[in-house]
Amino acid sequence: MAQEIIEDINPTRMELLKLKQREKLAVKGHSLLKEKRNALIMEFFNILDRVKGSREKVALNLEEAYKDLTAAQIAMGDLAVKKAAMSVKESIDVDVDSRSVMGVVVPVMDYDVQKRTIVERGYGFMDTSVRLDDASRKFEESIAQIIELGEIEKTITLLAVEIESTKRRVNALEHIIIPRLQNTVKYIEMRLEEMDRENFVRLKMIKKTMSESEA
């Protein structure tokens, strides 16, 4: 592996120059990709801080919300809850924007979930239970958290995919392509030197035979 060279190569000066160009380009690309990888990983760590425990928080909140919902359904009946739910007004307003992290487009949520009072929700008081108010409030809270969680998880997934492929490319350049180019350059240089020496010896021999025949 370490001594691997590019096959079918002619040991000529032309080829040597081309290879040196390629090596230069590969080294440059490698250092750029390495920087990209480092920047991505830094971003990844930043977002990791935010993900800690947020899924658990959402699950916990939802569990309570479902409990209240069930209680409301028991108190009012399934149909009445559904009816009340139909008349609730839209509460969330989400703007999805995107931002680019080293060429990876990640979503940025700009959301606004109104914390509404019971009057603003839009269902009547006559036939609804107080449990329904609790359930609505908890679901409102959960929605905000869910949207945030979604944003974080999506960002993590997208970044992870990009980091993986960048890592693979960095490693391929570092461990395979650049060494192979270097080895090939070395091989051609050695061949050229060898040819030089052969030529030198040949010239000497010719000179010797010429001077012998003259004498």
């Binding site: 919300a65 479902y66 919902l69 809850v81 559904k82 009340a84 739910a85 139909m86 609730v88 007004k89 839209e90 509460s91 969330i92 979930v113 109104q114 509404r116 929700r121 329904l132 359930a135 609505s136 908890k138 679901f139 409102e140 959960s142 929605i143």
Partner: peptide, 9 residues
């Protein structure tokens, strides 16, 4: 139903 109560129509 729950999410409708929360405000997602």
């Amino acid at each position: 139903t729950g999410f409708m109560l929360g405000g997602i129509k």
